[in-house]
Measured scan of single mutants.
Amino acid sequence: KELVLVLYDYQEKSPREVTVKKGDILTLLNSTNKDWWKVEVDDRQGFIPAAYLKKL
């Protein structure tokens, strides 16, 4: 499984997104879309802008 580091706080703006904090380490589920990556946060799955994440 691939992990990503959150570079900036992000507040979800729709039900398909998730809220994260800078410094969080998340499981990356899908990065095929270059703009929005799907991650897992506390048993929730959702999207975050790829620019907010860095692969570890």
Rank of each mutant, 00 (worst) to 15 (best):
residue 1 K to A: 13
residue 1 K to R: 13
residue 1 K to H: 11
residue 2 E to L: 09
residue 2 E to Q: 11
residue 2 E to H: 11
residue 2 E to P: 10
residue 3 L to H: 11
residue 3 L to V: 08
residue 4 V to W: 06
residue 4 V to A: 10
residue 5 L to T: 06
residue 5 L to K: 06
residue 5 L to H: 04
residue 6 V to M: 02
residue 6 V to K: 00
residue 6 V to G: 01
residue 7 L to Y: 02
residue 7 L to M: 08
residue 8 Y to N: 13
residue 8 Y to W: 13
residue 8 Y to V: 10
residue 8 Y to L: 13
residue 8 Y to Q: 15
residue 9 D to L: 02
residue 9 D to H: 06
residue 10 Y to G: 00
residue 10 Y to Q: 01
residue 10 Y to S: 01
residue 10 Y to R: 03
residue 11 Q to F: 15
residue 11 Q to V: 13
residue 11 Q to M: 10
residue 11 Q to N: 14
residue 12 E to D: 05
residue 12 E to R: 11
residue 12 E to L: 10
residue 13 K to W: 05
residue 13 K to C: 10
residue 13 K to P: 05
residue 13 K to V: 08
residue 14 S to G: 14
residue 14 S to L: 08
residue 14 S to V: 05
residue 14 S to P: 06
residue 14 S to R: 10
residue 15 P to K: 10
residue 15 P to S: 13
residue 15 P to A: 13
residue 15 P to N: 11
residue 15 P to W: 08
residue 16 R to E: 12
residue 16 R to S: 13
residue 16 R to N: 15
residue 16 R to K: 13
residue 16 R to H: 14
residue 16 R to A: 14
residue 17 E to G: 13
residue 18 V to E: 02
residue 18 V to D: 01
residue 18 V to S: 02
residue 18 V to P: 02
residue 18 V to A: 06
residue 19 T to F: 03
residue 19 T to Y: 03
residue 19 T to R: 04
residue 20 V to E: 00
residue 20 V to Y: 05
residue 20 V to R: 01
residue 21 K to T: 10
residue 21 K to A: 09
residue 21 K to S: 10
residue 23 G to F: 04
residue 23 G to S: 03
residue 23 G to Q: 02
residue 23 G to M: 03
residue 23 G to C: 08
residue 23 G to Y: 05
residue 24 D to I: 06
residue 24 D to R: 11
residue 24 D to F: 07
residue 24 D to N: 08
residue 24 D to K: 07
residue 24 D to E: 12
residue 25 I to N: 02
residue 25 I to V: 14
residue 26 L to P: 01
residue 27 T to E: 11
residue 27 T to S: 10
residue 28 L to C: 11
residue 28 L to K: 01
residue 28 L to A: 03
residue 28 L to Y: 01
residue 29 L to G: 02
residue 29 L to S: 03
residue 29 L to W: 04
residue 30 N to E: 15
residue 30 N to V: 08
residue 30 N to G: 07
residue 30 N to D: 15
residue 30 N to M: 09
residue 31 S to R: 07
residue 31 S to C: 11
residue 32 T to Y: 10
residue 32 T to S: 13
residue 32 T to I: 09
residue 32 T to P: 04
residue 33 N to H: 12
residue 33 N to L: 09
residue 33 N to V: 06
residue 33 N to C: 11
residue 34 K to H: 13
residue 34 K to L: 11
residue 34 K to W: 07
residue 35 D to C: 11
residue 35 D to N: 13
residue 35 D to W: 15
residue 35 D to P: 02
residue 35 D to E: 15
residue 36 W to H: 04
residue 36 W to C: 09
residue 37 W to D: 01
residue 37 W to I: 02
residue 38 K to F: 14
residue 38 K to T: 08
residue 38 K to M: 15
residue 38 K to E: 15
residue 38 K to P: 01
residue 39 V to G: 00
residue 39 V to C: 08
residue 39 V to L: 04
residue 39 V to N: 00
residue 39 V to T: 01
residue 39 V to H: 00
residue 40 E to D: 07
residue 40 E to C: 12
residue 40 E to K: 10
residue 40 E to Y: 06
residue 41 V to K: 15
residue 41 V to D: 07
residue 41 V to G: 07
residue 42 D to N: 14
residue 42 D to S: 13
residue 44 R to F: 07
residue 44 R to I: 08
residue 45 Q to W: 09
residue 45 Q to F: 07
residue 45 Q to Y: 08
residue 46 G to E: 05
residue 46 G to V: 14
residue 46 G to C: 09
residue 47 F to R: 03
residue 47 F to L: 09
residue 48 I to A: 15
residue 48 I to M: 14
residue 49 P to Q: 04
residue 49 P to Y: 03
residue 49 P to N: 04
residue 49 P to E: 04
residue 51 A to H: 15
residue 51 A to F: 11
residue 52 Y to V: 14
residue 52 Y to I: 15
residue 52 Y to E: 02
residue 53 L to A: 10
residue 53 L to K: 00
residue 53 L to G: 06
residue 54 K to I: 13
residue 54 K to A: 12
residue 54 K to F: 10
residue 54 K to P: 01
residue 55 K to W: 07
residue 55 K to C: 10
residue 55 K to I: 12
residue 55 K to L: 14
residue 55 K to R: 14
residue 56 L to W: 08
